[in-house]
Write a protein that binds this DNA or RNA. Structure first.
Length: 272
DNA sequence: ACTATTTCCTGGATGC
DNA sequence: TGCATCCAGGAAATAG
């Protein structure tokens, strides 16, 4: 599932491939679920716009545009991949994958395709350059600000990490992996965690996200980069998806519990 | 202002 | 073999 490192990988791959290109035309599928803006609005903003770049904001891919009309005003195309979304830059002759919901034809002759079997992903456009995620970026937030996020929160630390209005971009895999590395049980109430452990969590989260970005993300489920390539961080997972397997530190079997409907993996000996 | 629960969606895995 | 059921989970919506 695409979380911060996967979205970062896709956004970088996308930026490298499409920056400086121009949108010729847009095709949108019949299903309305993936669209947050109206089809007419998406077409109006994208068509004939120049692509200035692509970047990650939280779990969103933001494509910065300059409108092709007389105004040359800034605009943005925002893509959220949900669970199974893919954004691929393809040659036109490549066969259209099942569940393709949008095709953006470029002046260079290639196409950006949005494919999403489960349709949890979302497309939208904005007629400004102001898109911002509500939470703070985990790779940029200073440690004191990070610690303060959890002050007074009774919710389990795992739920707090997944809360996008606190932190932008952390999902199930990296929440579990960072909690393991920090030695904190996922069910611990956020407010009950010592300042020292929260500092440790801040460092662990940065480290795990940084390593995952270096390896191109985790390819579980159907995640691939903008060129269709897989990531390799799934080979470094220490607890996620390892229920019953020995902890890599102490050999105790990894436990799986459900928190807020999400499976959560931890070592009952290393995490307290 | 928070927190917890439900809902959306399909493919792959599992069970009888 | 075939059909039904379950499960994965990001985030919006809903309820408390």
């Amino acid at each position: 599932m695409p979380e911060l490192p996967e979205v970062e990988t896709i956004a970088r791959g996308l930026a490298r491939r499409i920056t400086g290109d121009r949108v010729e035309s847009v095709w949108l599928g019949a299903k309305k679920e993936p669209l947050k803006s109206s089809p007419a609005e998406i077409v109006a903003v994208l068509e004939h716009s120049a692509i200035l770049g692509a970047r990650r904001v939280g779990k969103h891919i933001v494509v910065d545009l300059q409108r092709g009309d007389a105004g040359r005003t800034p605009a943005q195309w925002i893509v959220h991949l949900g669970m199974t979304g893919r954004v691929l830059v393809c040659e036109v002759q490549e066969p259209l994958a099942k569940h393709t919901h949008a095709v953006v034809k470029l002046a260079s002759g290639r196409e950006i395709r949005f494919v999403d079997p489960r349709r949890f992903g979302r497309l939208s456009v904005s007629s400004s350059a102001a898109f911002a995620a509500p939470g703070v970026e985990p790779l940029q937030v200073p440690v004191e600000e990070f610690v303060a996020l959890f002050h007074g929160r009774k919710t389990p630390i795992k739920s707090a990490l997944l809360n996008q209005s606190l932190l932008s971009g952390v999902g199930n895999i990296y929440a579990d992996e960072s909690l393991f590395r920090a030695g904190i049980r996922p069910r611990r109430r956020a407010a009950s965690i010592s300042r020292m452990h929260l500092k440790r969590l801040h460092a662990a989260l940065r480290k795990v996200l940084g390593e995952a970005i270096k390896l191109g993300g985790s390819s579980v489920s159907d995640y691939v980069g903008a060129g269709g390539e897989e990531g390799f961080f799934q080979l470094r997972h220490r607890v996620y998806g390892r229920e019953g397997e020995p902890c890599l530190v102490c050999k105790t079997p990894v436990k799986r519990i459900v928190i807020a409907g999400r499976s959560s993996h931890y070592c009952p000996r290393c995490q307290n």
